[in-house]
């Protein structure tokens, strides 16, 4: 698939996900799974460490986001990614996209 077509596809998918409310459902599911997997705890700990290191008066949201994002992505368990992927695939089939 060429680049523009892929981008179009993604945009349509995003629209469908929002319109149907499926995005909210997926977000709630993801939130639950990450809590269960201890992901939230671990990230919160890490965030506290960063804040302490830089000092609460000096740190900005951007610092925090930059430092946390790679770790946050890496820590999502494969099983959670798989479950979400399945759900999205199923949704796309139902929507006949």
């Amino acid at each position: 698939m060429d680049k523009t077509k892929e981008a179009q596809m993604r945009a349509t998918m995003n629209q469908k996900l929002i319109e149907t409310g499926e995005k909210e459902r997926l977000r709630e599911l993801l939130r639950q799974r990450l809590v269960e997997a201890g992901w939230k705890d671990e990230l919160k700990m890490h965030a506290k460490e960063i804040v302490k290191e830089k000092g609460v008066e000096r740190i900005t949201v951007d610092d925090l986001v930059t430092e946390l994002t790679p770790k946050a992505r890496a820590l999502v368990p494969d099983s959670v990614k798989r479950e979400l992927l399945q759900r999205i695939k199923k949704f796309l089939e139902e929507q006949q996209l």
Partner: peptide, 12 residues
């Protein structure tokens, strides 16, 4: 509602 979400998807 779905109507509102449609607007949201197109505006955000």
């Amino acid at each position: 509602s779905e109507e509102m979400r449609k607007v949201k998807a197109l505006t955000s």
